[in-house]
């Protein structure tokens, strides 16, 4: 991680050490699933980059947008009407988590027998990643 990005992460209150582990985990999973395929379209490169950016470049984009006074909301599920938010100059950011790594951190607040998607998302929040 670049020094500049590290200071951004610290500014956001992110636990940088744990965050590095999350990234390593996400990269390994992506490489061992999508990355293992042989006949991929070349244009998939932009989507591979989006996986990495979801914890890096995209965070920076949103950070800068907010610093410039832009408003954003976190959203769950596919019922939130993006059109209305965007028309009111509010950026909707879907939060549904897919990473298995932070799931156990959700124990802090939630029972174990609820959906892993919810546990993943809040586990990221509770672990500061």
């Amino acid at each position: 991680m670049s020094k500049e990005h590290e200071s951004l992460m610290k500014d956001l209150g992110v636990n940088v050490e744990l965050h590095d582990k999350l990234i390593a985990h996400a990269d390994r999973l992506h490489d061992s699933t999508c990355g293992r395929q042989k006949n991929r379209p070349r244009e998939m490169a932009r989507f591979d980059a989006a996986v990495r950016a979801s914890h890096g470049g995209r965070v920076k984009e949103i950070y800068e947008y907010r610093k410039a006074g832009g408003k954003s909301i976190g959203t769950f599920c596919i019922y939130v009407p993006d059109e209305i938010a965007l028309a009111a100059k509010v950026l909707p950011i879907p939060l549904c988590g897919g990473s298995g790594w932070p799931v156990d951190y959700a124990d802090k607040m939630f029972p174990r027998d609820i959906c892993p998607l919810v546990r993943s998302t809040f586990g990221m929040s509770f672990s500061g990643t």
């Binding site: 699933t33 999508c34 395929q37 006949n39 991929r40 379209p41 244009e43 998939m44 932009r46 989507f47 591979d48 989006a50 996986v51 950016a53 979801s54 995209r58 984009e61 993006d82 965007l86 879907p94 549904c96 897919g98």
Partner: peptide, 27 residues
């Protein structure tokens, strides 16, 4: 593949809308 099509759908929820549209249209 199904794996890559899923990745595209996942990115639709992560990327900037315009950047996503351009990437998906190029794909």
């Amino acid at each position: 593949s199904g794996l890559d099509a899923l990745l595209v759908s996942q990115a639709a929820l992560n990327m900037d809308v315009k950047a996503f549209c351009e990437a998906a249209e190029a794909l």
